[in-house]
Write a protein that binds this DNA or RNA. Sequence first.
DNA 1: GAGTAATTTATTGTCTACATTTTTTATTAT
DNA 2: ATAATAAAAAATGTAGACAATAAATTACTC
Lengths: 251, 251
Amino acid sequence: MTRELKNKMSSSAPITALESDKRPLRKAAQNVRIYEEMLTAILEQRLAPGTKLSEDTLGEIFGVSRSIIRIVLQQLAHERIVQIQPNRGAFVAEPSHEEAREVLQARRLIEEGVVRLAVNKHTDTEINDLREMVSQEQESLDRGNHKTWIRQSGDFHLKLADIAGNQTLSAYVKELVSRNSLIIVQYQKGNLSACSCDEHSEIIDAIDARDEDRAAALMLEHLQACEDQLNLNGGEPKSDLYAVFSKASEN
Amino acid sequence: MTRELKNKMSSSAPITALESDKRPLRKAAQNVRIYEEMLTAILEQRLAPGTKLSEDTLGEIFGVSRSIIRIVLQQLAHERIVQIQPNRGAFVAEPSHEEAREVLQARRLIEEGVVRLAVNKHTDTEINDLREMVSQEQESLDRGNHKTWIRQSGDFHLKLADIAGNQTLSAYVKELVSRNSLIIVQYQKGNLSACSCDEHSEIIDAIDARDEDRAAALMLEHLQACEDQLNLNGGEPKSDLYAVFSKASEN
DNA sequence: GAGTAATTTATTGTCTACATTTTTTATTAT
DNA sequence: ATAATAAAAAATGTAGACAATAAATTACTC
């Protein structure tokens, strides 16, 4: 188990970065570095929902004591990426159906507002940034680099929130997008067919044309399409054995 | 300083509650108890913005070690009620103008959505609860119990989010309402004249009548009125001495 | 006496040790 | 052999100790 976690955490970002840095790397940055590595690992699905996040193991991996790990886990827990069960430990969150619907509902509400703000505040540079991001999305998709694409797809929405210029709303969008990634892992049905790069492009066009209502409508449509690609009707994704077997006996 | 903090923390909720409980009060609950006491103390303005929150002192007050206090401060920091300055400690947050405007903007966006959801989901019982809350608000106001009223006024909005039935949005509203309290302390201009109990009542009426658009409009109006009662134009509330004196020389 | 440098004091950041709880393993009885 | 119980192991929760940093005080120079 210990070794397994190690592999998953270090697969893309080598932990040796700690020693390789010349400067002692002021301690304050330790927390955020570990936070970001763990978040990335979860969002890129190297750590699946339900995975136990042992404090000792993580401390060993990152070369720090449990105190530090504890703070990071607490942070992730506040963003609902990690669930802490008292006296039992931290686990990668496994959002329920209700939670999934909540997150999508919240996204529609908040991101419609965000896109409206973005329409009225954006600069030409930012439009270019957005287009660049979408083309990179497309690239990942063409290469079949699915996990990278999920992260990039989220980054698009974060950038939009950034353009809107409200840091409070940005923080909420960031949290919701992260949680949405976990939801996709658990509830995505089939292989995502027609993916949403085109939808992102259309949204950019509407923003560029300063057509607020159209941009808002496209965003709602886009998020609805995301929800429609999920299977939020059946029983729990796993572990709800009662539901699984009661269903079997109904046939 | 130590003694001062002690008085402010214990003025309304005696800390002796710890010993008076029969059962050992399972440890897990410690965190949340301390969290709630501190949050209440801040929201009721017994702890003013900018107040230093010393870990040692708080640990002494609540009879726990710094580890526990640290977790609670971390939690409050994540909700932007407390600001942690690395190597300097935790302070009750002092929202800037921009932050204040952000919070109000976010509230308008989110709470408009929340009230629309509430219109479509509410039960008769919940309407009664809301009316009861408003009458208690009025009572506090008549008695000149200003600090209690601020908290109750926030509770009204929390209840609304509760009715809307989306826990994610509820959490955001809770955070925003808390931050708004800090903003009021810092930026309220003059004594609040015609207060918003009536506005709350009107919103309830619209919800009860299931008039979604009217409820939404009233909510926006209400929040705009809140913002209009603030002074968000001048320099920083304090500590921005440059702004203060450059202004003086302009006259 | 005012301003600066050095020293002391206080506070936060991190680690380690111990207590408590949970989980696993071993034992026993049915 | 299976289930229940008891013992052992492992993990989390909390406290306390030490290190690193910031604040305050004192000493010193001009």
